[in-house]
Amino acid sequence: MLELRLVQGSLLKKVLEAIKELVTDANFDCSATGFSLQAMDSSHVALVALLLRSEGFEHYRCDRNLSMGMNLNNVSKMLRCAGNDDIITLKADDGSDTVTFMFESPNQDKIADFEMKLMDIDSEHLGIPEAEYHAIVKMPSAEFARICKDLSSIGDTVVISVTKEGVKFSTRGDIGNANIVCRQNTTVDKPEEATIIEMQEPVSLTFALRYMNSFTKATPLSNTVTISLSSELPVVVEYKVADMGYIRFYLAPKIED
């Protein structure tokens, strides 16, 4: 028996909008720790890892570990039927091949349930070790989204370079090239408007802008984004999901050969 009640149902709506472009089908795993997902995009270039910790739910019942295969486009269709202020409850019986999404309006005057068929998905689970990153950049998520969008009108790839001067996003294409430098800036009115750069050593990596733009679909989830870079590893683009978890996007770099 599985029953997860999320008072801030809009978070789940935003999570689906954030990942459905990148991943088509995925297994949602439910355990005592929380509700999680790990999936690669179809090209196996990017990976998304979602965790919504059990403590973040108003009610969390998961009698035994359960993996539910879902088509994310179909989940998104279901969740779009929930109001932004609705409380969302996920329910599944042991051995059932369906999951039920229950939507309750805040004043309890409307209750809807949508039952969706589950699917069998063969998914590969990757071990992601804890890593030391050469540079970690925390910046406003809207600013990062703007930069990715602007650069993708010029080129297909972005070079992200972190030095003591700041973080530089560069691209080049047929019509020309572009460089955007963001310097550390902590003298702002609100902490979420700050750009904070922690650098152990300079790093410069090249990534496909198409994927970066896809990651920025998570922007409505969080005012800030954290970009962790290491010359030996995929970049991690992380958006917090309120105080209950995160979405982490991993993207393999392009390497000059």
Binding site: M40, H44, V45, A46, L47, E124, H125, L126, G127, I128, P129, T157, T206, A208, L233, P234, Y250, L251, A252, P253, K254, I255, E256, D257
Partner: peptide, 14 residues
């Protein structure tokens, strides 16, 4: 010539 690396070349299957 730029090569797009594969995520599986960094992380191992569990």
């Amino acid at each position: 010539w730029v090569l797009q690396k594969h995520i599986l070349s960094f992380f191992e299957l569990e």
